[in-house]
Design a protein around this nucleic acid. Sequence first.
DNA 1: TCCATAGATAGCTATTTAACGATGTGACTA
DNA 2: TAGTCACATCGTTAAATAGCTATCTATGGA
Lengths: 107, 107
Amino acid sequence: MDSLNLPEYREEQAKALASAVRMQILQWLKTPGAHFSEQTTGDPVRIGVCVTLITARLGMSQPTVSRHLELLKRAGFLSVQRIGKWSYYRRNEKALKEYRRWLGETL
Amino acid sequence: MDSLNLPEYREEQAKALASAVRMQILQWLKTPGAHFSEQTTGDPVRIGVCVTLITARLGMSQPTVSRHLELLKRAGFLSVQRIGKWSYYRRNEKALKEYRRWLGETL
DNA sequence: TCCATAGATAGCTATTTAACGATGTGACTA
DNA sequence: TAGTCACATCGTTAAATAGCTATCTATGGA
């Protein structure tokens, strides 16, 4: 076939979004304070939400959640910040916006 | 976990787009005349492009292409029109636009 | 009526994905 | 310094996906 003009990472991003679990994570992280108010070790809006809370809310095993978070991070949609024993994940709005823009003009 | 508010078909649509082959098909069909000018049995812009031409352009087996087209159709992104022995596929711009709108306000 | 053509469907295989439990690692804590 | 906590990584298994060949169905032409 013709060479694909779909960059590798765009496909990776599309795959990251093609999962109900990962879309749910992204949506929760839009308003972390509303969904993870239990977090006391830091402002969820600023630094992000720790894995334990996301795991509890999803009701699945911690390694599985870790894997979903990694895929979203690899796609560029999440960034992590490690503070002490905790990893705080938050949305990368810039990458999300960029992806929407690309899809809008490509699709 | 909380009940997901991602409707089933939104996930199906996202999966349909998470494939380089299917994205390529959608892009070609944006300007069918430019990519499938060989088609003589009907105006590709109006009625769509037949499976044989898409198959030739992709360079993969006909059943595989048929499968990709079916997934795009199930997602609502393509519609088919059968005329004689031919099936003409074309973009469903309304569904594509709707999906972009949904993603924009959900993501 | 018979054959060819277009496309869909079925069946198989290889690969990828998603889940899990077990274990490793690094950082606080008693 | 021993233990615990937070998270990542590893290894396995089951299910989903993508490709192929073979075959079926329907239409059109000789």
